[in-house]
């Protein structure tokens, strides 16, 4: 891959990768840092990329690994415990309580389950694509999705119909 191609990739998918990272880490600046690191790491390790026309999947793999590493290092903090000043200033004001509840519920999921859920329902990947991105099998992805949804149902009883 040439540098010009990567530059096109950055311009086309920066926001998408940023949104994915943000849902994992819940902080704007941190998500931007992780997004930037994901693109740079993609460039540094481009020799490992198998040119199958799925650069975006490879980017998601890198971004997912970065988020996973961050989640391992960072001790989880409930969003309700954060003071208002530390919450994202750019978060949408309407229905803020629901948004925070969803965010807290997502944060309570184990990384692998949250990752599968985000990639499937938020990013629109198929189970097979998620299996390729997360280097696992399709049944494992389906199991993670099932567990994640079951756990979310428990956590979001009041929000769900």
């Amino acid at each position: 891959m040439e540098q010009a191609e990567l530059e096109q990739l950055i311009l086309a998918h920066y926001e998408e990768i940023y949104a994915y990272c943000w849902r994992h880490v819940g902080g704007r600046e941190l998500a931007q840092d992780l997004t930037q690191t994901a693109f740079l790491r993609f460039w540094q390790h481009r020799d490992r990329y198998v040119h199958d026309g799925r650069e975006l999947n490879y980017l998601y793999t890198i971004a997912g690994n970065l988020c996973k590493d961050w989640c391992k290092r960072k001790k989880a903090v409930a969003l309700e415990d954060l003071p208002e000043s530390q919450r994202d200033p750019g978060a949408p004001p309407p229905d803020r309580d629901t948004a925070l509840t969803v965010r807290a519920a997502l944060a309570a999921l184990p990384f692998e389950q949250r990752n599968a859920l985000l990639l499937f329902y938020d990013r629109g990947f198929t189970a097979a694509e998620i299996a390729a991105i997360t280097r696992t099998t399709v049944p494992a992805v389906r199991y993670r999705l099932h567990r994640a949804k079951r756990r979310l149902r428990e956590l979001l009883k009041e929000e769900l119909p």
């Binding site: 949104a19 704007r28 978060a91 629901t98 997502l106 769900l160």
Partner: peptide, 8 residues
């Protein structure tokens, strides 16, 4: 449900 918490 996930999109209710849109990223900034």
């Amino acid at each position: 449900l996930l999109r209710r918490d849109a990223p900034p």
